[in-house]
């Protein structure tokens, strides 16, 4: 028969395991968007998506509201289309909102910055399957340098 002490220590061991899991899940992983919540989809067409990837985050004022779910190329005008999954908690962005591809830090990942637009009677609310019209493409460093040199030369 096993002693009380062993049972106690095993209980403690299991409790430690659960504590470790909680610690990892709550304070190490991103607690905001785990990707498991309810989402709705929006679409956005860009000229150039740069380094944007599937699962890149979508932020409003720095707060994560969703993730890029899929990136594909429109077969008619060969422009990249991103499918976005936005948390249903944030379901009243007006259709005047704009989307731009930004970089976190100099070497950081690229993410989508969503800028909510103005609201009046003529403006609708973005719902499932809508396109965000106002998009700004990624800044490509080579193009930027090219433009800079070109403008220098023309002066």
């Amino acid at each position: 028969m096993i002693s009380k002490k062993i049972e106690l220590l095993v209980g403690l061991f299991v409790a430690l395991g659960i504590a470790a899991l909680m610690f990892l899940a709550l304070s190490v992983a991103s607690s905001g968007m785990s990707g498991s919540g309810e989402t709705y989809n929006l679409y956005a067409k860009f000229d150039n998506i740069g380094g944007l990837k599937v699962r890149s985050s979508i932020k409003v004022g720095g707060v994560v509201v969703g993730r890029v779910e899929e990136i594909k190329l429109d077969t008619e005008d060969y422009a990249p289309v991103a499918k976005l999954a936005i948390d249903t908690k944030y379901n009243n962005f007006p259709d005047t909102s704009s989307l731009s591809i930004l970089t976190s830090g100099l070497l950081g990942e690229q993410y989508l910055g969503l800028e909510p637009g103005f609201i009046d009677e003529t403006v609708g609310i973005l719902g499932e399957g809508d396109f965000i019209e106002d998009t700004k493409s990624a800044l490509v460093l080579e193009e930027l340098i090219g433009q800079f040199l070109f403008s220098q030369g023309s002066e």
Binding site: A25, S30, S34, S57, V64
Partner: peptide
């Protein structure tokens, strides 16, 4: 930064 990059799943 850790929390932003670590995903639970």
């Amino acid at each position: 930064i850790m929390q932003a990059s670590v995903e639970f799943e």
